[in-house]
Amino acid sequence: MLPTSVSVLVVDDSRVAQKRLAALLEEFGYQVVGLASDGAEAVGKFQALRPDMITMDITMPGMDGIVATRRIMEACPSAVVVMVSSHGQEAMVLDALDAGAKDYIIKTVEKETLRDTLQKIVIRHILKPSRPA
């Protein structure tokens, strides 16, 4: 099953990380519909673009990923927010999950693992939206 036509908003304060993840997502077949560099921009772009999925960096200047996730969930509880984390950020991921994020990915994993994780998330939350989680 290919994640064709799953639209994604990529949120990361680092331009390099943004581009890198966006390129990978496009390679996997996702449609990257927008980029945002901080929480406030992410909330704004989410409202405007209504993407199927948002990849959300956790630590960002200004409004961080956790607060932004909470804002997005308030506006749209069915939004699929996926945290982008690194090893050692587990406690923050927990906060984000409590704030309503659906799942998380780890920046440093191998490409294949990332592809599989994202596919799992798409199957669980986007292709079967009736299932609560």
Binding site: E90, V93, L94, L97, K102, Y104
Partner: peptide
Amino acid sequence: AGTPIRAEVYLSL
């Protein structure tokens, strides 16, 4: 709460 998938995500941390 009947959301085993979410339980799995929490445990994966």
